[in-house]
């Protein structure tokens, strides 16, 4: 196994695990504001590591640029939607989670 392949497998697994950690954060964090944090980290770093791994064995520069473009677009999109959610949540005065409070005390909003 060459050094390149080892690096690539490390990046791939790390990226996928980053996505997992992001989803885990989305499940474990107590309120809307903290969950935004989990969302954007997973998008940026998870997809970024996977794209880096894939770039290592592309055959043309154009393909590498396309992969980087996809990464950049996802990054902007997730940052933007995170910002929009935070902005609107602030506008509507959604309360922050107090210490000791778990999310179970919140009733579902849309039922």
């Amino acid at each position: 196994m060459s050094l390149l392949a080892i690096l690539q497998s490390f990046l791939l697994i790390a990226g996928a695990l980053m996505f997992c950690i992001g989803s885990l954060g989305l499940i474990r964090f107590p309120d809307t504001y903290t969950r935004i944090h989990a969302l954007t980290k997973a998008d940026n770093l998870g997809l970024g590591l996977i794209v880096l791994a894939l770039i290592l064995n592309v055959e043309s520069v154009a393909l590498a640029l396309k992969l980087l473009l996809i990464w950049g677009l996802v990054m902007i999109a997730s940052a933007l939607s995170g910002h929009l959610v935070a902005w609107e949540a602030d506008e509507q005065c959604i309360p922050l989670c107090q210490p000791g409070e778990t999310e179970r005390h919140l009733e579902s909003e849309d039922e």
């Binding site: 990226g15 996928a16 996505f19 997992c20 992001g22 989803s23 885990l24 989305l26 499940i27 809307t32 969950r35 935004i36 989990a38 969302l39 997973a42 998008d43 998870g46 997809l47 996977i50 996809i70 996802v74 999109a77 997730s78 939607s81 995170g82 959610v85 609107e88 949540a89 959604i94 999310e103 919140l106 009733e107 579902s108 909003e109 849309d110």
Partner: peptide, 29 residues
């Protein structure tokens, strides 16, 4: 699947939207 769980669980609509965004990025990957 964890993203789907968060959409199912909520509790706020904003959480569901963020989970959908994350699953979208996972789909890209």
């Amino acid at each position: 699947l964890m993203g789907v769980f968060r959409i199912w669980r909520g509790p706020r609509m904003a959480d569901r939207i963020m989970a959908a965004q994350l699953t979208g990025s996972t789909g890209v990957a």
